[in-house]
């Protein structure tokens, strides 16, 4: 497997360092899980890879021409906006193929008329299905019911089998266990 991403002795943060020193590599077709208690810098690590957070030391090496997609915990601001699910997918270039039936039937509804879980899954899908080689997901199971988590688990496997590398930050231990090829547990001051 070819390496998409390599982190060497990386320390990242915002105004000050928020992670311990981290070394890891991610290959195409691999799903890597990052877990650990609050405050160890899991989301900050994704933000640093995406170029949002500051790198204090170490380095991030990406395969040349790597296309990234990032799902954050921020909710897309769609309240009061006449934007349908189909239009949202078109914005990121995501395909609707493979959406669960409970969402596929509501693709032409305004996003602010969907339930919190439906909206979250559609916003997640728009990122997950965007043309990308490496997909970074931050707490993707938030707001999802059991059917949503099951569909996401199956779809992440399909996305990885199609060649994408996926990095997942999650507190949902059962989900991480079910979907990830490899799990790294971040702890304050160390990486296991």
């Amino acid at each position: 497997m070819s390496s998409l991403l390599k982190l060497e002795k990386l320390v990242a943060g915002w105004q000050q360092p928020a992670t311990s020193q981290i070394d890891l590599a991610l290959a195409a077709g691999e799903i890597l899980g990052l877990t650990g208690p609050n405050g160890v810098g899991k989301s900050t690590l994704l933000a640093a890879i995406a170029g949002r957070a500051k790198v204090f030391s170490g380095r991030i090496e990406q395969r040349p021409g790597l296309r990234l997609a990032l799902q954050t915990q921020d909710v897309p601001p769609v309240d009061g906006l006449p934007l349908s699910g189909r239009e949202l997918l078109a914005l990121t270039g995501a395909s609707a193929n493979g959406l669960p039936p409970w969402l596929n039937d509501r693709l032409d509804d305004r996003l602010d008329q969907l339930s919190g879980g439906q909206r979250h899954y559609l916003a997640l899908w728009a990122i997950l299905q965007a043309p990308a080689d490496l997909v970074l997901l931050d707490e993707p199971t938030n707001n999802l019911d059991a059917a949503g988590v099951a569909h996401l688990t199956a779809h992440l496997r399909e996305r990885a089998e199609a060649g994408a590398g996926i990095m997942v930050v999650s507190h949902d231990a059962a989900f991480v266990e079910a979907v990830c090829d490899r799990i790294i547990v971040l702890e304050a001051g160390d990486v296991e």
């Binding site: 995406a50 954050t72 914005l91």
Partner: peptide, 17 residues
């Protein structure tokens, strides 16, 4: 149009690409 909508809904999409 598309960039303005994308900037509003997914502001990180620009930076990351």
């Amino acid at each position: 149009s598309k960039q303005l909508l994308l900037l509003h809904v997914y502001p990180d999409f620009f930076r990351i690409r």
